[in-house]
Design a protein around this nucleic acid. Structure first.
Lengths: 208, 208
DNA sequence: CCTACCGATCGGTAGG
DNA sequence: CCTACCGATCGGTAGG
């Protein structure tokens, strides 16, 4: 009969490092993104970390909290990144360009977070869900305002600011679903092209 | 003591019409779109139809089959609609325009199907999932080819046909997530604007 | 971090 | 279309 530790060592699983809240969240990001919140069992997260399911509760308070923290942090970051980006420039076309660039880049570099925000926000219970929606709306409303400003000044030519804002934002969101970080185009290249698409969508007259 | 039928009548629920496979699918479309495949229980579908869960099996063979039928039919229709649309015109810019128009219009008029295809295809088991992916790829590859054709002929000016194709298709897909059929803009208006956005993204020189 | 265990609910079947 | 029921699995707790 073998000792328990020897049996465990013989399974060939990679050595466990240290389980902490960050590690739990990282695995949750991967599995939620792959299978969705409802499609992921805590037992799968635990297995990936090579611990038993109840041990997860040393690093989180509930499955809902895990989802809530991911969605809140992600949308918080999107919002602050957006505000930093437009603060740096004044021209309305340039603002739309940098806003699109950072939003696209974030979706290319953080696909798991993006997929979960867009697929599983409905799985989040209130009041956390409303807080996430509020972040999203704040961002979308501001981009819409940017476009309306460009229309009013005659720099942009587009039928409807709301439709254009959704088109621009959503083509960026989708990057998280198709972009291959190991492919030929770097994340910055995809972001740059989307920023150009945004200017073209609003028909901005840009130099160069 | 009241008779069973009287009790049922007294609940105030709307009169049940006739349950058939189409009614089951319609309710599944609504609930899957709202909560996702894994987030929807068959008991909820049954409750919405005012029958017991086991009775659902008179109208479907399994939950997986229900999802598979929805996804296969939806992607089949997208593909045939696309082929019909581009057949009707010859010019490459016009082809991109009509292809975008019908794709956008479909997502505005069939939001439930669109949301489910894009969120729950990963919940579909093989080999059905691969068949759905094949339909999607056929459509995306053809649109990418259209754009490449325009680049080669000098009509379009875009860095990368694949990136442009994804941007155009995905901004249309997202319509299903934000479009309000009861709002100010008709579905056709949203589709028309997206067709214009597509031409602008590829920088096509269009008359008018 | 574990074992032992909980009530609830899942998709689905048997047999009318 | 129903009642009665199945094994499996869910998120989570007790108590070390």
């Amino acid at each position: 009969m073998e000792a328990k530790s020897a049996v465990r060592r013989s399974t060939g699983a990679t050595a466990r490092v240290s389980v902490n809240p960050g590690a739990v969240r990282d695995v949750a990001l991967t599995l939620f993104a792959e299978r969705g919140y409802h499609g992921t069992a805590l037992s799968q997260i635990a297995k990936s970390l090579q611990i038993q399911t109840p041990s997860l509760y040393n690093h989180m308070s509930s499955k809902q909290d895990l989802l809530g923290a991911i969605l809140q942090d992600t949308t918080d970051r999107v919002l602050s990144e957006y505000e930093d980006a437009i603060e740096a420039v004044d021209d309305v076309a340039e603002r739309l360009e940098v806003a699109t660039y950072v939003y696209a880049l974030r979706h290319a570099t953080h696909p798991r977070e993006a997929v979960i925000v867009n697929r599983d926000v409905t799985a989040l219970e209130e009041p956390a869900r409303s807080a996430v929606y509020a972040n999203r709306r704040k961002h979308a409303d501001s981009v819409r305002g940017l476009i309306q400003e460009g229309i009013d000044s005659g720099e942009f030519a587009v039928d409807n600011a709301t439709v254009a804002a959704f088109a621009i934002l959503e083509m960026c969101v989708s990057i998280a679903r198709w972009f291959d970080p190991g492919g030929l185009i770097p994340a910055e290249g995809v972001a740059r092209q989307h920023a150009q698409f945004a200017l073209r969508i609003v028909s901005a007259h840009v130099a160069g």
